[in-house]
Computed example of a mutant assay.
Amino acid sequence: MNVSAASFNNSFVEEDEIRLGYNHENIKTFLGKSSIKDLFPFANDTSDAKQLLDRFVATLSGKLELRLENLLDLFTLSIMMVTYQRDNLLLTKERFMLVDAVSHLADSLNSEELNYMATGLYDNLIRGVGLERLESVLDMQAAIPSLVASCRLGNNIAVALLLTIMGQYTGVPVQLDNKESAHKAFEMAKLINWQQLADSGRQADMFMLVRTFSLIINCRRVREECLDWKDNLGAEIHKYFLQVRKAFDHTAAFGSFEMMIERFIAYCVVRGATTTPQLCNYKISELTNSESQNMWD
């Protein structure tokens, strides 16, 4: 469905604040169809978020022999658990620790394996179109800071998944080789008709794409591995998205959601392209609860 502006101009932000993410039925259903269901026999009878997170991490601390399919399902599970019973705000560190544990189950992945992981995660986690797709993307993106912070593998999977979201939308195959990710994202961004999205009431798609692009370029490792960021690309992105920001200038409807998109572009993309990246790399095990919470803001 293509959600019109009128359907959520005044209510989307408030609804988003109370979305509860995944529930116990979602976790049971996923595990029941997964390749890792035998690893966690306790999951069907345990719904408490802390107990589940602690027992998942404890299981993964043992000696495991994993295939690539198992690793994909473990990453899917860890991302789902980031928003499992999300109203429990005291478990931020525990959620990040599960993502960290999964990210350290393999040393590295080649480009073919990375593509398998990113495509598989997209298929497992992203559903629908319009507002439904936006909500599933937002749930997935809640795990991006912890993936980026965990280790190089987690970082690579995070960026590959974000690029895959843009690639799936634009229909442009993207090479997931951990090279020139910022350039690849920007080239896809320039293929999007932002004015058409604004005029046709497809603000959900617009915000999904802008937020995905912002997360890519605000990852420190992506910036460090882009050889001409300071000399060229950052300024190009800044200039280009100044124009994208004006997409709503001539649209019939302009409400709180459109205003939020404009501000997001201004602060997280336009300003973000010329300031210090917000998604940094450091050890999750050294985070305090308050520091972990700040990564979500």
Rank of each mutant, 00 (worst) to 15 (best):
V129A: 14
C226S: 14
E132C: 00
S200M: 12
W229P: 04
L227M: 04
S136Y: 07
R133S: 14
M188Q: 11
R202C: 12
G130P: 08
E225V: 01
W194R: 10
L138Y: 10
L209A: 07
Y169T: 06
D231L: 09
A185S: 12
N218M: 08
V137H: 01
M188T: 01
L134D: 04
E135T: 14
G154K: 06
P145E: 05
G234D: 00
L153Q: 04
P145K: 04
R223G: 00
L176R: 00
Y169C: 02
G154A: 03
I192A: 08
R133H: 10
V172E: 14
D139P: 00
F207W: 12
L147R: 03
D231I: 03
E225Y: 06
L215H: 14
Q168R: 15
L233K: 04
A143F: 08
L227V: 13
N193C: 06
Q196S: 15
V222D: 01
L147Q: 02
H238G: 03
L134T: 04
A142R: 14
C219M: 10
D205A: 10
R223S: 01
A189D: 11
Q168C: 09
I217T: 08
L134F: 13
N156M: 12
A158L: 02
R220F: 06
I157F: 03
D139S: 12
G171C: 02
E224M: 11
I192S: 10
A142G: 06
K190A: 08
M140S: 13
C226F: 00
R152T: 15
N218G: 11
V148A: 10
F207I: 13
N232D: 12
I216L: 07
A198P: 07
E180A: 14
L147N: 04
M206S: 06
D228V: 01
N232V: 09
M206H: 04
I157V: 15
G154V: 07
G154L: 05
K230N: 15
E180D: 15
A185M: 08
W194H: 11
D205Y: 07
L162T: 01
R202Q: 15
Q203T: 08
N232K: 09
A143H: 09
A149P: 01
H238Q: 13
L191R: 15
V174K: 06
H183C: 00
Q175Y: 10
I217D: 03
F213K: 01
R211K: 14
F207Q: 04
A158P: 05
L162K: 01
L191N: 12
D199A: 14
A204L: 02
T212K: 02
Q195E: 15
N178S: 14
H183Q: 09
Q195K: 15
L161Y: 05
C151P: 00
P173A: 10
V137K: 05
N218A: 11
Q141P: 01
T164V: 06
V222I: 09
V129I: 13
H183G: 02
V129W: 09
V172W: 04
G154Q: 03
